[in-house]
Design a protein around this nucleic acid. Sequence first.
DNA 1: TTGTACGCGTTATCAA
DNA 2: TTGATAACGCGTACAA
Lengths: 335, 335
Amino acid sequence: MTGKEIATRLGISMMTVSRALNGRPHVDKKTRDRVLAVARKLGYTPNHIARSLVLKKTNTIGVVVPEISHSFFPEVIRGIEDAVYAAAYHLILTHSAEDYSREQDAINTLESKRVDGLLISTAQTVTDHSTYIEAIRLGLPIVFFDRVVPNIGASCVSIDDEDCSAQITEHLLHHGYRQIAHLSGPPTVSIGKERLNGYQKALERNGLKVRSDLVAQSGFHEKGGYSAMEKLLRLPPRERPDAVVAVNDPAAFGAMKIIQEHRLRIPMDIAIVGMSDDVRAELMPTPLTTIHQPGYEIGKTAAQTLIAEIEGKSEPGRRIIVRTELVVRKSCGCL
Amino acid sequence: MTGKEIATRLGISMMTVSRALNGRPHVDKKTRDRVLAVARKLGYTPNHIARSLVLKKTNTIGVVVPEISHSFFPEVIRGIEDAVYAAAYHLILTHSAEDYSREQDAINTLESKRVDGLLISTAQTVTDHSTYIEAIRLGLPIVFFDRVVPNIGASCVSIDDEDCSAQITEHLLHHGYRQIAHLSGPPTVSIGKERLNGYQKALERNGLKVRSDLVAQSGFHEKGGYSAMEKLLRLPPRERPDAVVAVNDPAAFGAMKIIQEHRLRIPMDIAIVGMSDDVRAELMPTPLTTIHQPGYEIGKTAAQTLIAEIEGKSEPGRRIIVRTELVVRKSCGCL
DNA sequence: TTGTACGCGTTATCAA
DNA sequence: TTGATAACGCGTACAA
């Protein structure tokens, strides 16, 4: 079913059909009604592919996430979907599985599919930003979210990672902990670096030295948290941490597991805090103190920002910070 | 950057460029190398829109899920994404937010975008199947997953809901429970109906009558589970259930909450089981016995089935059952 | 109000 | 091995 068929069937021109179907002016009401009637009867479906080709606009945005199934990103995607739906856009979803070359693959195809813009949260293994820069140079708007790449001309939507990390570290300091360790994320990813910075600055602001033996790289997952914590527990008793700031909740879960296997008590022997407020955080044997990261809002804001840029209503290169909230539970020992 | 530009720049025809770029035969090796070199230098990106228009093939499938953020569907989507990526297809994601008209909207746009096939899990409020039937009639393959619509010519991938429900009900029966209640899903959705059937059949097979006062409609969410259970707890003590089969884990969580508010003990006073194996199930104060639903596998299988049908390698109308597993924890009282 | 010509970027077909 | 032509379905610009 094409517009042309409707046209010949009605003995009118394709143009009139097009105008009628799109609710454009300059078409007689009677003609319009006849067109709409025939269209409905014949089950006409407009062909967005053809339309996109001539208009050079797909009303589609491409999304690249590093991971689909861990509670935070689904929330973000829901926020994106809501914003995108409200603006009558659509969403091609790809995931990089934390793999750089797969991410590049995704970006290339998304470009081939002529999406109007890109929403990206970078993979852990990303080191080179040339793909992003090239896309931007060619006029394809990009908005980064959560794991962002600032200062290359793209807008970024995230929480203030450094500040969050400093805030939760200071929460521990104010409650008397002095040997505070950090389970750090991959240093290649923005949030890994910034959360480490926040942790260090909080210590320094409070007159403590940063001890490098108290920083263990865990990555973002439970397994990494487990083994990084294992390393810290091997320190001589007097040098062991009395509290731990994990780069995110899953890493904290892994750490909590091995702490318990060592028959140490949380928070009495070791306090621990996370970041992200995973669904599981409040259900742990000792509920986890953490920072709530509003995934839905991050997604929605990122999508709205991107669409505004696509439509020329907003300039690229903005840095948008979404507000977070400290959620105090039992694992930090102050309740 | 278009193929035509490469052609004029090299003084050859567009067709030769096309052949070279797509690795087709009948093009001189030297010519091919020159084309590829220029393409790279100029940053040429093939235009899938134009290609799709002439080929009548987008290599894209549309996915409609009722809900994005609740642990099961993200798993499914990850499975879909993996299968789709492996077959060099892409994925347009939409969500219906359990709303029928929004689902129809999504299907219509997906048709307009000329996706090669549809992967659907129906919204709760769906009553009318004509949109699906019409799409199938027009030659657009559909595969339903999880919440399926059998017997309309589309393949369905799901667990055997009736059997699962019967199995977990019999697990309770074998352990001596006799007044078993059911928190049921919406009767309009396949899994709601079938799980109710399974529950009833299990009772009947074991010589028990189904008591309608022990069936309370909870829907799929925590809140519904809470209020449905509230109703059951208002029964006179002797008529109260000694065990509960919830239609899914979230409904069970809601029920557990009010059971505890009534200072009743799980499983001593009331045993309870769920279905779906939510991430939170094992972390509840009393870990929940449930049936593990392999979301990743459901998604992957559904996508593979759809792609096979798109490519004519498989016939529609198949009924694929994915294996499940009973996960026994403390809430059923047999540990 | 309506219609005509042309173009969007690509591929299939057939001829050279 | 190469190229010319037509076609995919629609919208813009202009003319009638």
